[in-house]
């Protein structure tokens, strides 16, 4: 029977949506910060893969989830440093360098995984769900929505922190100016490059965290290409969210909903629709979202342009 429209189904769907949105929330909020400083990082996919792999490897070696998450963030930032060096210091084209980062991330993680881990077949412990007093006891939704692990809950914290950083701190004010009027920041005596490095490192650290969630909070194994395009979808989320962290949180949730729907509808044998139609849903919706939002009116003015002091 079709049990799509029951309240229980809806609650489960929303809970799954939040879980599936988590890597997107981290990566897209990171990318919002990076793009607000004028740096477009299409290397997110490779960066997330590094986070996923290094998080897995560190947790595999130590048995510790926090250490794994830290390793994921560090790996993301290491890739961020490479990206920042080539795009900010060398002033190379951001798309070209991003493409290289993706190749490196895909190649390096698959190479190391096949060399060291594929034969072990062993996974790692993943973060356990935590109940939140009162919220978890709500009827219907409490059980489905508030039985997540701490990494999922922390998406809210990261969103709040990103808002404070961007809109309530002088660092954020300057950072946004770097994306719109780098010349003004330069004339005011601050280093455009330093702010861009900072923004890229925050962004890639969050992307690494998003990747690490995949192996430490979602599946307990690393698989080659485990991110399956989430790094690219995060780029679309940023556009759809009009470069706002809160927007990125909710748009990510929307995409999480597409993922969750895809999984739930695949499990409905009565629906005579090929499963590939659901697989394609998030990618199709990304294109639709770009058409709906269109324009680049909200984009930072100097997005994608290296800053030249002359």
């Amino acid at each position: 029977m079709l049990d799509i429209l029951t309240l229980g189904f809806l609650a489960t769907l929303l809970g799954a949506a939040w879980r599936l949105a988590t890597p997107l929330i981290f990566a897209s909020i990171g990318e919002v910060i990076s793009e607000r400083a004028g740096v477009l990082n299409i290397g997110l996919e490779g960066t997330m893969l590094m986070g996923a792999f290094c998080g897995f490897a560190a947790s595999f070696a130590t048995g510790s989830i926090p250490l794994g998450l830290a390793a994921g963030i560090a790996a993301g930032m290491a890739f961020g440093l490479i990206f920042a060096f080539f795009t900010i210091t060398v002033k190379a084209n951001q798309i070209v360098v991003g493409a290289a980062i993706n190749l490196l991330g895909l190649g390096l993680t698959a190479f190391l995984f096949r060399t060291y881990y594929v034969s072990t077949g062993r996974g790692v412990d993943i973060a356990r769900p935590v109940r939140i007093p009162w919220l978890s006891d709500l009827p219907f939704f409490g059980e489905a929505l508030f039985r997540q692990n701490l990494i999922v809950y922390s998406t809210v914290l990261v969103t709040v922190l990103a808002v404070i950083l961007l809109y309530r701190s002088s660092f954020g004010l300057t950072l946004r100016a770097v994306g719109d009027h780098p010349k003004a920041v330069d004339v005011a005596g601050r280093s455009v490059a330093a702010y861009r490095y900072g923004a890229v490192l925050i962004g890639t650290g969050l992307a690494g965290l998003g990747g690490a969630f995949l192996t430490l909070g979602h599946s307990n194994q690393f698989v080659e290409g485990i991110t399956s395009g989430r790094g690219f979808i995060a780029l679309a989320v940023v556009v759809f969210a009009r470069w706002s962290p809160v927007g990125a949180f909710f748009v990510s949730l929307l995409f999480g909903l597409f993922y969750a729907l895809q999984l739930q509808l695949q499990a409905q044998p009565m629906l005579n629709i090929p499963y590939q139609a659901f697989q394609a849903l998030p990618y199709l919706m990304t294109i639709v979202a770009l058409i709906v939002v269109g324009g680049k009116s909200a984009a930072p003015r100097k997005l994608g342009t290296p800053y030249d002091e002359r």
Binding site: I101, L103, G107, A110
Partner: peptide, 11 residues
Amino acid sequence: VLVSIIQGIVI
């Protein structure tokens, strides 16, 4: 997949 790594470094 070594070839992907080499391609990335070439770029």
